[in-house]
Write a protein that binds this DNA or RNA. Structure first.
Lengths: 337, 337
DNA sequence: ATTTTATATTAAAACGTTTTTAGAAATCAT
DNA sequence: ATGATTTCTAAAAACGTTTTAATATAAAAT
């Protein structure tokens, strides 16, 4: 492969000059620069990462952490976000180290090894993630960004989905197909994203005059556990019990919607004529189920890309005030509405 | 954090001694070793990865490559294999760099950056992967292992699933519930794993005397495209057309089985009474569909773990003859049989 | 008692960069 | 012409390890 020394010799300049060319720094004569560049090309020289990292003190890696459960889920959601980051990283010279943490994260017991050994310059956290982990990062002054999550009362760098407008447009769409009794099925109700989706749901109902007094509660089902098809099944069952006139349901995400779909089918209720369903996330499975799910698309790749950009800014300027960036969503109409 | 120098000073030994203790090499007196260890503990010292890598010449990273399509699929299959590797890697000091390649891989155009910059000691390739990529790795003498894939006529290090026995037991199970006319739906028929599954299917039919002359072809459907729910839908349609007496179908993997399931449901045919279905892989979705899919479980985490171990052996001893390791499978009986 | 071998420790070289410092040459202002 | 900048290049220090070679002591073998 050759080292920087070989290049310097062949191009008849000093090592320093080659380094300057390599990094676009300092003053280098146009002619010298060209000669060096050409030599680099010719000898197919690639600077050694380890050497470079040793000299600069940066690791050149960034960590990507998700809750372990999300890896076992039906959801490709977080994998897609990761992929978005990976795409962005390809243009830079950093690598992304993916790992998982358990729900009950305890920094005294076990921390991801790239944190322990200081092998990342920053970390992206996707989705619901242990607060103890976030606090740990904060305490250790390790730059980080949250993706599709926020911690109530805290002001951290994060990339958000436009949950509110997504939910609003979903419910709006239901009203426009004539639905009047629209339920909401949620989970983990302390999750900020779900809260926002609920707010969008509520405001849409209000905007279309579908709220009497006290009816909102009757049409809402939420349990404080991780969202899953099971919650969807249970939710729709409860809502149907409470409201025989239910004619549509907005589920807080696709797995929940899948569960609802299953339960509704089991009861031989017609979709979407008797009950329409709309989900949120647009995960891959949602267009393979029968009937195909109407849902709010979340541009997962963009989410990852934006997170990568933000994280790099945070790494560069650690003392800037926290930023919140919001990624838009759009409704994908399929067969359940 | 402190460097090896600080440790040496505090422990009143030389840098070399600390290094020897760190790596369990050479001769170090018991007492000295203890003192050094204790100092390391006290100062919470972690050796710098970059420095270490620079000195040893190894990157300490291993690459994990899958075809891009597998990332967009419904399948969590390859993510799980990755996770298995990541778990294994946690016990060592290496990181796993995950990336994707396009189907038409051309080393002259674009190679994964960790290959280009020599940042990995070896590579794991999961699933169907461009042959041009494998040849590239072979040519560049980069240690690699294939996971759940093989290239016909070539003898590479790989970790395989026991496709044959998995398929055999699946079909055996169908016969045991009284099925006599068992179809096969496949895809990408040059894929070695699917070939093996087909062989298991065929041998099981033979073992249970379900093959007349020429009937095997009638009960087989395969198209040379990536397996997907669509293939399943199409396959079952064709098989039903050809064989009105069809009473069971073995699909070459779960996504295919999902498609078949959908199509069968659409035609109002009773599952499993009229037609039973069994898939292969046991991906997460297969126990969330309605009815829940009977399938052959593939221990994906073990697959990843074994690949990690094998790859490390290959990295250590690059000139050993290629090994094939096989991971067992087992049938998971659910509601489609 | 002497040589050999095993054990224990260290100084110094090597790994391949970046960065700092210094000095020379060219350009500019006076 | 002189001094002050600006532009260009290089030598050398630094980054934090591993590894090699050298030295010293203790134990074993002759």
């Amino acid at each position: 492969m050759g080292t920087i020394k070989d290049i310097a010799q062949k191009a008849e300049v000093s090592i320093s000059t080659v380094s300057l060319v390599l990094n676009n720094k300092g003053y280098v004569g146009e002619e010298t620069r060209k000669k060096v560049m050409q030599t680099i090309q010719e000898m197919n020289y690639k600077p050694s990462r380890s050497a470079r990292k040793l000299a600069t003190g940066k690791s050149g890696n960034i960590g990507f952490i998700i809750w372990e459960g999300h890896f076992y889920d039906v959801e490709m959601f977080y994998s897609q976000i990761f992929l978005g980051m990976e795409y962005a990283a390809r243009k830079s010279d950093s690598y992304i180290l993916l790992t998982t943490v358990k729900e009950e994260f305890d920094p005294k017991k076990e921390v991801p090894r790239f944190l322990k050994y200081n092998d990342v310059d920053g970390v992206a956290l996707a989705g619901r993630v242990p607060h103890t982990l976030v606090e740990y990062l904060d305490r250790q002054r390790i730059p980080f960004v949250l993706i599709d999550y926020a911690i109530p009362g805290k002001n951290y760098n994060c990339v958000q989905i436009d949950n509110y407008h997504g939910a609003f447009s979903a419910v709006e769409h239901l009203t426009q197909s004539g639905k009047k009794h629209i339920g909401f099925v949620g989970g983990t109700y302390f999750h900020p994203s779900i809260k926002e989706r609920y707010r969008g749901y509520k405001d849409a109902l209000e905007a279309y005059n579908l709220i009497g007094n006290g009816t909102l509660e009757k049409y809402t089902f939420a349990e404080n556990v991780e969202t899953s098809p099971l919650i969807g099944e249970k939710g729709i069952a409860v809502l149907l019990e409470r409201n025989p006139d239910l004619d549509a349901v907005f589920c807080c995400n696709d797995p929940t919607a899948m569960g609802a779909l299953k339960e509704i089918q089991k009861r031989q209720i017609k979709i979407p004529d008797d009950i329409a369903i709309v989900g949120f996330d647009d995960i891959a499975t949602s267009c393979f189920c029968v009937p195909r799910l109407t849902t709010v698309n979340v541009p997962k790749l963009s989410l990852g890309k934006e997170a990568f950009n933000l994280l790099n800014e945070v790494i560069e300027h650690p003392s800037e005030p926290p930023q919140v960036r919001t990624i838009g969503t759009y409704l994908v109409k399929r067969e359940t509405t």
